[in-house]
Computed example of a mutant assay.
Amino acid sequence: MAISFLFIVPSLIGVVLFFGAPFAVVVFYSLVDNPTKCNFVGTLNFTRVMNNSAFQKAALHTIEFSAIAVPLAVVLSLLLAIVLENKIPGRSAFRSMFLSPMMVPIASIVLIWQVLFHYNGLVNQVLGIFGADKIDWLKSDQAHIVIIALFLWKNLGYNMILFMAALSSVPEDQLEVARLENANAWQTFWYVKLRYLSSTIVFVALMSLINSFKVFREIYLMTGDYPYDSLYILQHYMNNKFRNLDYQDLSAAAILMSVIMVILVAALFTIEERFGKDVENS
Rank of each mutant, 00 (worst) to 15 (best):
V215Y: 06
R217Y: 09
S77M: 00
D229S: 14
I233M: 15
L268A: 15
G131A: 10
Y119G: 11
W137R: 04
E280P: 02
M1N: 10
A67M: 10
E176F: 08
N39R: 08
F28P: 05
M160R: 04
L250V: 03
Y247D: 02
A59N: 06
N184D: 13
L175G: 13
M50L: 15
Y237S: 00
F130S: 14
Q114T: 11
S212R: 03
I112D: 03
S100M: 13
A93E: 02
R274L: 05
F189Y: 09
S92I: 13
A73C: 14
P171E: 05
V27P: 03
I145G: 08
I68E: 01
S282G: 15
T188G: 11
N51G: 14
D278P: 00
V259P: 04
V26L: 11
I112F: 12
L180Y: 08
S100K: 00
K37Y: 06
R195Y: 06
V75E: 00
V170T: 08
E273N: 14
I8T: 14
Y196Q: 06
A67C: 11
D249Q: 12
V115C: 12
I271T: 10
L111H: 04
S92C: 08
V123T: 08
A107E: 03
Q125C: 09
V27E: 00
A107P: 04
